[in-house]
């Protein structure tokens, strides 16, 4: 379970998050929507441990562990996964090697046995196929020369292989055509279960037709301005953020 209490964060002395309260119980999928620049990515980065942000108040715990004091790699090992809004290119680093190194680092940290190259490739090929991705994606350098859509799908592939207990998807749907969108949704839905929760950051209601969330939150002014069921996403689509936020205050 993810519990965020009064979380405030700033970048370069500019306050972005101003008292976020949010609880995502185990097994639930929550969506966060909000206008551009409202701090959605900031929240995702603060939860996964990027250094540029200063947490100025509040707390965030994952299964009772204080997330904010953990190194990014320890958060990942604890089961947190961030699908980046802008996946990073790693020239000279093969995708398969990268994925195996990550998976084995997590398995090692959890006291599990490592996968050898053959075992890993079997797993990776199966996941690649299930997500309808070309197999040569594993042979290429991480995100180098990938189209925008391929980069997003590569994030989903990583999630499928690393099997997190809490996935944060930061606008994984933007820039995707409807087929790619379904692939992303299938990737998330395949993991859904009592031991998996997700925070889906999106700008559009469209993705939520395929991944039906348990709750929807609207982020505005650095706080959760409204929360509700899936119908909130439709309301948002109809009224727009401006109308919603005006109603909320």
């Amino acid at each position: 379970m993810l519990e965020i209490r009064g979380l405030s964060a700033a970048i370069e002395d500019k306050p972005i998050l101003q008292g976020i309260d949010l609880t995502v119980p185990q097994g639930e999928v929550h969506a966060i929507m909000g206008p551009n620049g409202s701090g959605k990515s900031t929240l995702a980065y603060v939860l996964s441990g990027r250094e540029d942000y200063a947490v100025t108040a509040g707390s965030a715990t994952f299964d009772g562990h204080d997330l904010l004091t953990m190194e990014p790699e320890a958060r990942a090992t604890a089961g947190l996964f961030l699908a980046f809004q802008y996946p990073v290119e790693l020239p000279g680093v093969g995708n398969a090697n990268f994925l195996r190194t990550a998976l084995n680092a997590q398995r090692r940290a959890r006291g599990e046995s490592e996968l050898d190259a053959v075992q890993f490739l079997k797993l990776a090929r199966a996941e690649t196929k299930r997500l309808a991705m070309p197999e040569d994606m594993l042979r290429r350098n991480v995100n180098v020369g990938f189209s925008g859509g391929e980069k997003k799908r590569n994030e989903v592939l990583q999630m499928a292989i690393l099997r997190p207990r809490l996935a944060i998807l930061d606008e994984t749907d933007s820039g995707l055509d409807i087929d790619a969108l379904k692939i992303v949704a299938d990737g998330v839905n395949a993991l859904r279960g009592p031991d998996f929760s997700a925070l889906i950051i999106t700008h559009y209601q469209r993705l939520l037709d395929y991944i039906v969330p348990d709750h929807v939150h609207v982020l505005a002014g650095g706080r959760i301005a409204r929360s509700g069921g899936p119908e909130l996403a439709h309301e948002l689509e109809a009224k727009g953020y401006a109308g919603m936020i005006a109603e909320a205050v």
């Binding site: 441990g49 990942a76 998976l103 680092a105 997590q106």
Partner: peptide, 16 residues
């Protein structure tokens, strides 16, 4: 720094 964070966010230690 972005590349380092990307790797670490996947569970890979800072040194590795």
């Amino acid at each position: 720094a972005d590349q380092l964070f990307y790797l670490r966010s996947r569970g890979i230690s800072d040194a590795e």
